[in-house]
Design a protein around this nucleic acid. Structure first.
Length: 436
RNA sequence: GGAGAGAUGGCCGAGUGGCUUAAGGCGCACGCUUGGAAAGCGUGUAUACCGCAAGGUAUCCAGGGUUCGAAUCCCUGUCUCUCCGCCA
């Protein structure tokens, strides 16, 4: 959320930001000036009358202490009541309208963010690794997974529906191995603390990180309770410190969490229907940082490099993209996407998204810290990134490490996590498992 | 699920209808003191909003209500703690 005073003083800049993100400024901000004026007027009026009421009440107290009759003053105050309630109501309404307007305004963008409407305008800033060359035609992961008997989409559809997956045997084990490998790397070498948060959160948490009120349609909600399935660990982990004051000495705070993520994927009909690129449930290792404002740009680079390191150790070719204005999420001021090479499909696909939210989430979630030598509390900067999306890493390994005979080699660093297994082969006794 | 007790500023904690502009303490900041530090002493120290300012308003978990007036009384909800029950 942006600060009201900032918006009032920089309305032109805010409108420019909206245009850069491909939104019409009038839609959101058209009524801003009027609403701002109405809000101030109604607050002033209501407060003036309240001050009068308070004075009269004091007069009642004074008279009663002095043993005088206060009935006349009491009556006068009683007469103010209806007017006061009306003024209070309209002030509260204006306040609420302003609050909900501000809650829907996206974050300001950092100066280096390139212009552009959609992903076409994202800028490639780095590329790593070499794409594997095959002497045969590379297969997509859904074919490899089905033939190996480790990926079972038919039974997933039966027990849950479309966009769910069942993993068997070494497929299931590789999911677990990847999560352990990533967590170990971030905890032991990158200095993160591991947390295991709840997978259901309340709406206050979703407001704090910016999913609500605008993006309720992307989420799964439990009936008759204020519980929502998390779309990413960013939500519970960032909200750990909601309404808290952090000690400057403990910043930066770096946390990592492995959780499932649940997304309704409304509006994605017909998109990525093959394989497990886009699922209602997937697992992800998330990186979250709380930092001092002056360090956030450097910490953003560092966090992104931590996600890149996972791809490097797994020897998966990737490229690093700086998202253009139109493709940058509403809460983010600057985002890098890491895209992994998928030879089975011949394209790069997002496997990590690393964002700097500056004070946007901290203001919504009220996460502050005490600055040394300063009386006032300041908002921290929050950052997060996938380190990595485990399901997409899993399928990237299948496609990049496939052999002509349909087996899949296991990346060197993963072998210890796979109980020493080096290759995923089709099991002989896979009769019970759907395969083609 | 049942019974009871709670929720007050960065933290602890007093406060059962008006003299609360929320006592007191801790912490923090600044000053004095000191060769330097600690201790000690003194001063200051919640947030947001409205107002050019003087000043004002709101906030004691949240939302309603009673009252001339609510941190305080009533109702509902949320959360925490204790005990009982059930349970992986």
């Amino acid at each position: 959320m942006l600060d009201l005073n900032f918006v009032r003083a920089n309305l032109g800049l805010v409108e420019e930001m909206l245009r850069a993100r491909g939104q019409a400024p009038e839609m959101l901000l058209g009524g801003f000036r009027d609403l701002d004026q109405r809000r101030r007027d109604s607050i002033t009026k209501a407060e003036t009358l309240k001050a009068e009421r308070n004075k009269l009440s004091e007069e009642v107290a004074r008279r009663k202490r002095a043993g005088e009759d206060a009935a006349e003053v009491q009556n006068r105050t009683r007469d103010l009541k209806d007017t006061m309630e009306a003024l209070e109501r309209s002030a509260a309404e204006a306040e609420e309208s302003m609050r909900s307007l501000l809650a829907r305004v996206p974050n300001m963008l950092q100066p280096g963010v390139p212009p552009g409407r959609d992903e076409q305008s994202n800028v490639e800033v780095a590329r790593w690794g070499s794409q594997p060359q095959f002497s045969f035609s590379a297969k997509p992961h859904w074919e490899l997974g089905a033939r190996l008997g480790i990926l079972d989409l038919e039974r997933a559809a039966k027990i849950s529906g479309a966009r769910f997956a069942v993993y068997w045997d070494l497929g299931a084990r590789m999911e677990r191995a990847l999560a352990s490998f990533m967590l170990d790397l971030h905890v032991k070498e990158h200095g993160y603390r591991e947390v295991l948060p709840p997978y259901l959160v309340n709406s206050a948490s979703l407001f704090g990180t910016g999913q609500l009120p605008k993006f309720a349609g992307d989420l799964f909600k439990c009936e008759d309770t204020d519980h929502w399935l998390i779309p990413t660990a960013e939500v519970p982990v960032t909200n750990l410190f909601r309404d808290e004051v952090l000690d400057e000495a403990e910043l930066p705070i770096s946390l990592t969490a492995y959780t499932p993520c649940f997304r309704s994927e409304a509006g994605a009909y017909g998109k990525d229907v093959r394989g497990i690129i886009r699922q209602h449930q997937f697992q992800k290792v998330e990186l979250v940082k709380f930092v001092r404002p002056e360090e956030s740009a450097a910490e953003h680079e560092r966090l992104t490099s931590h996600a890149e390191e996972v791809l490097r150790r797994l020897e998966l070719p990737y490229r690093k993209m700086l998202l253009c204005a139109g493709d940058t999420g509403a809460s983010s001021a600057k985002t890098y996407d890491l895209e992994v090479w998928l030879p089975g499909q011949g394209l790069y696909r997002e496997i990590s998204s690393c964002s700097n939210f500056e004070t946007y989430q901290a203001r919504r979630a009220n996460i502050r810290y005490r600055v040394k030598g300063k009386a006032k509390l300041e908002f921290v900067h929050t950052l997060n990134g996938s380190g990595l999306a485990v399901g997409r890493t899993w399928l990237a390994i299948l496609e990049n490490y496939q052999e002509e005979d349909g087996t899949v080699r296991i990346p060197e660093v993963l072998i210890p996590y796979m109980g020493g297994e080096r290759t995923i082969r089709r099991r002989n006794s896979v009769k019970a498992i759907a395969s083609t």
